[in-house]
Design a protein around this nucleic acid. Structure first.
Lengths: 148, 148
DNA sequence: ACATAATCAGATTTATTTATCTGATTAAAA
DNA sequence: TTTTAATCAGATAAATAAATCTGATTATGT
C-alpha cells in the first residue's frame, strides 16, 4: 500500500534521481539501473520508456544504448515525473474519498488537507534535480546497506 | 488510485463520520449506510465488522440490528480509524519508496516529507468527531448532489 | 411459533496494479 | 559481416485490492 504515489511512480522518481547522479556518464542501461536500485529490470525499463514518451528522458537503442535525461538537471523537477506517471489529479482529490469535495461543500479535513496537499506539490516543485544532487548521491550509495 | 488511504480506509472513515452524525438514532444498518454514502453494501458491512473487532464500533445482530459507535463522539478521532484499517506504518514509510530512509540516510525530500507526514497525523489526531459534527452533517446532506 | 431482517464468517469473483515474457528492431563492437 | 547487447511494443502472468456471494446465526416483531 503506497502513500501518495504508485509504485510505478516511486520507481520512476528513483530512476530519474539515479540518472541525475550519473549524468556525467551520459547513458545508463535499464539493467544497470535495475541492479543499483533493486527494481525489476523489465519494470523500470517500461517506466523509462513511458518517461521517454513524456519527454523527460531520452533513449539510445542498440548495443551500449540506454537512457539519459533529456534536459540539464537544473531544469528537471520531481513534480514533472509525478505528473507524467500518476497525473496531477491525485493532489486535487478529497483525501477522505468524498466526491464533490470543495470549499463550498468541504469534508471535515478539507481545508487542512488542501494546505498540506499544496505544500506537498511545493516540495516536489521547488527544487530542481541539481539542488538534490549531493543528497541523492549519498542516498544512492547507501542502498542495500543493512542499516544506515 | 488513492492518495494516502486505501479505499477501504476511506469508506471506513466515511462510515464512522456517518455514525457520528446519526448518533442520536443509536443504530444504523449496513444497508442504510451503504445507500447514504453510495458505498457497496457488503463492502461497508465487512469494513464495519473489522472496526467492530478493533473496538471502534459495536454491533447488534438480528432484526433491526446494525452498527453504532462504541464510544462517545468526543472520544473518537479519525486517526483511530486509519490506524485500525491501514495501520500507522504508512506515515513512516519513505514517500519516494526508498528502503531504510531515515535522517541518517535521507532521500532528497526526507525532511520536508517528515514534517508534512507529521502534520497529516496531527490533522487526523487533533480533533474528535464531535468537533467535526456540523461540517460532517452538512457534507453528508450534500452527497449525490450534481454540483455543490 | 414463525417470518423477517440484520450481523457475521469465509469463500469467491472481479478489477487493478505490479511484474514478467516474447519477439522485433536497432546499433555498436568483435 | 556477424555477434552481442540494448530499446521497444505488446501480450501475458502474478499479486494485491476491491467487491460480491453463500450460508449460518441471531434477534425482533407479527
Amino acid at each position: 500500500m503506497s502513500i501518495i504515489f504508485s509504485k510505478k511512480c516511486e520507481y520512476g522518481i528513483q530512476a530519474i534521481l539515479f540518472l541525475s547522479a550519473e549524468v556525467e556518464s551520459q547513458i545508463c542501461s535499464a539493467d544497470e539501473i535495475s541492479k543499483k536500485l533493486l527494481i525489476p529490470k523489465e519494470f523500470v525499463s517500461k517506466i523509462l520508456q513511458e518517461l521517454t514518451t513524456s519527454g523527460i528522458v531520452d533513449s539510445k537503442k542498440g548495443k551500449s544504448g540506454g537512457f539519459f535525461l533529456s534536459k540539464p538537471i537544473s531544469e528537471i523537477r520531481l513534480i514533472d515525473v509525478v505528473t507524467a506517471i500518476d497525473g496531477f489529479d491525485i493532489f486535487n482529490k478529497c483525501v477522505l474519498g468524498f466526491s464533490n469535495c470543495s470549499s463550498d461543500s468541504p469534508c471535515p479535513v478539507h481545508n487542512t488537507w488542501a494546505k498540506l496537499s499544496k505544500e506537498t506539490v511545493q516540495m516536489l516543485s521547488e527544487a530542481t534535480l541539481d539542488e538534490f544532487l549531493e543528497t541523492t548521491k549519498r542516498k544512492l550509495s547507501s542502498i542495500g546497506d543493512v542499516k544506515n
